[in-house]
Write a protein that binds this DNA or RNA. Structure first.
Lengths: 126, 126, 126, 126
DNA sequence: GTGGTCTAGACCACG
DNA sequence: GTGGTCTAGACCACC
């Protein structure tokens, strides 16, 4: 956990870190009150600049996922109750539609996406 | 064809252009030997700077998709059919992965996406 | 090192820069992980436009020799030792072929070159 | 003969053609009075623009190697007696020295050049 | 007409 | 500070 980042990816390092932690919290992998690795420790493990980790943690803090306490560390906050499922579906649909539009612009067939989707979801999730 | 780019997208213009052409070649829409629009012409059509088109074409050339000839123009190169389908899959996967990342950022579960995907694709395609 | 370019040469500036660095990497002069001079710094030193250095670095990146990281710098990538020697040979062959072409243009026989080569190399090296 | 040109080479097409013919004449492959292929014929064979062949022939004409006669064709001219061997050697040495300088600038060892030279001359000439 | 190169200078995101 | 992108405009060589 928290050991895979790709410096060559177009997604910023701090974004990759934040995304990973966000998901971990959402999935209950990290529970409220639990401490995140210290900035220096995580930076050392990932062999990146500590400032980058700080940036990631700050993003998570501004989103309400974690709380940074001076001298103590960074801790997972109590997350608001899940968005209502209707809302979640709407959000998911928005994302899918955006992808379909982009694919159409590129001239990709829907079948190509279906294949890729199955492949990626299979590889990432179950 | 080749007329839709989005200047507000985080994807660089030259990348959008290159991606579109890559797919067109992979799909056989553009056949070997066929000329691409001239740098100035495409730049004019897209209302962007010629240098940006050059950058897109150069990327495609370094990837072996096209060949730029002094004073003659830019032409589609022979690409193995195997690589063509690979390229389509790669492009589709890129899109899906981008969506999954964004979803993770929003804290959406993969299941939400699967549901939305089925729903949207069902509405569009089958 | 990295300070000699000839603006009057028919070889583009970015190509001269890229070639020099390619050889340096192939020769092990520049080791994996080592940072290249920053774009602005090298541009300043060579008294050329930063964009030209960027172009050189981009070529090297697309060839897999270096890695450019946002906000961090440009770094030498791990290159298989086999490829390193290949690269040296390729670069040397390029030079020799250029000379042979020029010689043919002048109507010189290969024997004239062989003689001259032995003479000059003898004087310089062994 | 006269069937090998490389559109991707940095050397212009007309230069490749002219160089090839120059050598052929110098080597006595093409003798004085002998006709060159017609512009259209050669252009067809090489699958290039006739204007490019014309340009090549014109270069050769301005150098005194051939003579273009309206409606008749292009013919090999009587070539001046060979430059004195001393002069030839000087010219060859100049080329070799230029190459060595360039190689030094790139950081290539003389041995690399020796190897490449043997390889290229072997492949091209004997 | 075509692409190839280079400059000058702007603005942005990242570490 | 770093690289990334884009513009505007110049000049050149080639077809």
């Amino acid at each position: 956990m928290l050991t895979q980042i790709d410096p060559r990816s177009p997604t910023p390092l701090y974004d990759q870190i934040a995304a990973r932690i966000r998901v971990a919290i959402a999935a209950g992998e990290l529970e409220p009150g639990q401490p995140l690795p210290s900035v220096r420790r995580l930076a050392g493990r990932l062999r990146i600049n500590p400032a980058t980790v700080v940036q990631a943690y700050r993003v998570l803090e501004s989103e309400g996922f974690v709380e940074m306490r001076q001298g103590a560390g960074t801790f997972v906050r109590e997350v608001e109750s899940q968005r209502r499922s209707q809302e979640r579906n709407a959000e998911a649909s928005r994302l899918v539609r955006a992808m379909l539009t982009e694919a159409a612009r590129l001239g990709l067939a829907t079948d190509d996406l279906v294949t890729a989707f199955k492949h990626e979801v299979g590889a990432i999730d179950r």
